[in-house]
Amino acid sequence: MEEESLSRWIAETKTEWDAAFKLMLNYYETELFRSFKIAYHAATWYRFKNPALIFPEEREMLFSTPNAEIPFDYYPSQIAKLGINAHNFAYLADVEEYYPYNFSLFLWEQKEYITPLQRANLRVAHFIPDALVEVTREGLRSFLKSRGKLEGLGSYEDPLVVIETLGLMGMPRRDDMLNFVKDVNEDRKAGATFNAFLETPYLFSFAGMVTPPALNEDKKYGIRRRDELARIKMLMSHYVSGELPDETLHAELQRAGYTTTIEDRTYKPEDAVDLRWVKLEYALERVKKSIAVYEHKAAHSNYYCYADMVDALMRIAEKESTAAQSYL
């Protein structure tokens, strides 16, 4: 691509990121956000392999595609850009809630556990859950595109996106992922594409429940350590290739504390984050619209994930409704 053409494309992409940021402020706002700028920096991709990252100390959110290695916009739609903006800025809420005086400890938790990422996504689900799902969808498609897989996963894409999103939120899910993987692999084209997807660092479908930092070490909430989740992904790669038998994989999952449901009925994962900066009236309206979408999907699918998404969003809606009523 010619340099002039790339520069023009980057400028247009920045305009889209700026517009998505302004749209986010309809649902999620604090004066803190206004000190940030959005800028392009290809080195963010080369160093972190991440298409968009927030740097709180520098007051910047940097997007990094298109670039020489990824010659396309990783999150091409406005709704996905909205979701990524919200996800990145939600980290600031997490820092303020749990680490107001110790940013280095937040960075340590983020390095060791996926829970800060889950909490950021859960916060986003409180006001734009549809955008969060599109982030997962476009992230999946762009990852596969970067691996030369353009045919996609066909009918398996949507349930995988929803299951992964629930894992990224740290909310309960009931689909049997081993059976799901077997079904995908029986489809030759989808199976080959899924094998490429297994090059991703983590399978969030296997992630445990979202928790506050104090519960990170409690195994009854499932797998949250990054190294353990990466190991499970590696085992799944061996399983898919036929190198690992079912019983060995089941034993490894059990040893790792794998669970995607809640045994403790008193624990409410949605309460792992508070409602700071959420504009409740607008947020609740959008959450309810998403509930209707997934109720329809649940009624026409054999997968549990759509009903699980309804349950997750109903939990959030109830929490927001209670908070809104307390302000009356």
Rank of each mutant, 00 (worst) to 15 (best):
S205V: 14
G222S: 05
F206S: 03
D18Q: 13
L253A: 03
F36W: 02
F72P: 08
P56S: 06
L229S: 07
L92Q: 00
A256E: 01
T13P: 01
S326L: 11
F143A: 07
P76M: 03
Y75I: 08
R34M: 11
F106S: 01
G154E: 02
F127I: 04
F36P: 05
A90Q: 08
A196E: 12
L215H: 10
M24T: 08
W17F: 10
P76V: 04
K145Q: 13
F206T: 03
D187H: 01
A324P: 00
Y304I: 04
T266L: 10
K145G: 03
E157T: 08
R315M: 12
R47H: 10
L284R: 05
K81C: 02
Q78A: 14
E320H: 06
P129C: 05
R231C: 08
R224M: 07
Y75K: 09
T322I: 03
N88K: 13
L275G: 10
Y113T: 11
S205M: 10
L313P: 02
L25C: 15
L160E: 01
A20S: 15
R315C: 09
A131I: 02
F206G: 08
E199I: 00
E285H: 12
E12V: 07
L117V: 13
F127W: 09
L6G: 04
T30M: 08
C305Q: 07
F143P: 08
D94C: 11
L215V: 12
I84D: 06
R137N: 10
I291R: 08
A131Q: 05
F106K: 06
L132N: 04
Y113P: 02
I163M: 15
A324R: 12
A190Y: 06
P100I: 02
I291K: 05
R137A: 06
G148P: 10
E96Q: 14
N302D: 14
D246M: 11
N302E: 15
G139Y: 06
I163W: 04
G152Q: 04
R286I: 07
A86Q: 07
M171A: 10
L107A: 11
R231P: 05
N195M: 12
